[in-house]
């Protein structure tokens, strides 16, 4: 359905990230590409859980006339996204620290130069 625009946005985000990973030679750009894919997947999880007109699944100060449970957005994807974001941060930190070390040793961040390991 064409009204699945949020899902299509997710795919576009993944495409942008994957493009960076596949075609950019700078290692930092590859790291950024991975982060963009990560954001795309996180956005995907969040959009999965949206329900039309749903409120946040919090009982404190609940607006009146909210139908339980159909009036709230799904809580599990939000929890999954929370976990996935933290994992993404950890991964990004590690990748960038590797990039720093690689620059120290190779004086370059070009993926066509950083290839002592081959064949």
């Amino acid at each position: 359905m064409i009204w699945n625009i949020p899902f299509i946005t997710v795919i576009v985000l993944i495409a942008v990230g994957l493009y960076a990973v596949l075609f950019k030679r700078n290692l930092i750009k590859i790291a950024v590409g991975i982060t963009i894919i990560e954001s795309g997947v996180n956005l995907f999880l969040i959009t999965l859980g949206y329900r039309k007109g749903g409120v946040a699944p919090i009982y404190t100060n609940l607006p009146p006339n909210v139908e339980i449970p159909k009036g709230m957005v799904l809580p599990v994807p939000q929890a999954l996204t929370l976990t996935s974001i933290v994992i993404g941060v950890a991964v990004l930190a590690l990748i960038l620290s590797f990039t720093m070390k690689i620059y120290e040793h190779y004086k370059s961040l070009d993926s066509h130069i950083v290839r002592r390991l081959k064949e």
Binding site: L18, V21, L22, F23, K24, R25, L27, I30, S111, H112, V114, R115, R116, L117, K118, E119
Partner: peptide, 13 residues
């Protein structure tokens, strides 16, 4: 086996 990381991912794709 050219050692370029971009191509590693390209093979996966």
């Amino acid at each position: 086996h050219d050692g370029i990381i971009n191509n590693y991912i390209a093979w996966f794709i």
